[in-house]
């Protein structure tokens, strides 16, 4: 069971990584990052089957941090939308990317 769960987590993580690298919409990129974090959660829960409760407790911290990150991240996306009227990262070239 653990092998399958770890495989699932690795697949989710890779999908998230590709999402960040390929997609150009800031909100979709952010969603892909959240997918990465949740892939980590799957791995932590799987490992805690082997090593005890620590991993599952860690999952709560990860979820809390993801929520805090979402709050600040969406605020930043709104503030950039006010300047550019778009959230496509290809358009943000005021600074040399």
């Amino acid at each position: 069971m653990i092998t399958e769960a770890l495989l699932l987590s690795a697949i989710l993580f890779v999908i998230g990584t590709f999402g960040v690298l390929v997609r150009r919409n800031a909100i979709i990129i952010f969603l892909a990052i959240e997918l990465q974090l949740n892939a980590v959660n799957v791995a932590l829960v799987a490992f805690s089957n082997l090593h005890g409760i620590d991993g599952q407790i860690f999952v709560f911290f990860v979820m809390t941090v993801a929520a805090a990150e979402a709050a600040v991240g969406l605020a930043i996306i709104i503030s950039i939308f006010r300047h550019y009227e778009t959230v496509d990262v290809n358009n943000f070239n005021f600074l040399k990317w």
């Binding site: 987590s9 993580f13 990052i33 990465q36 974090l37 980590v40 932590l44 991993g55 930043i76 950039i80």
Partner: peptide, 22 residues
């Protein structure tokens, strides 16, 4: 713009860091 770039890449790197910890 700097905030968005820092946020996206910083959160992206956090994902790797966290997977490493797991």
């Amino acid at each position: 713009e700097a905030g968005l770039k820092y946020f996206l890449l910083g959160a992206f790197s956090t994902g790797f860091f966290l997977y490493g910890i797991a």
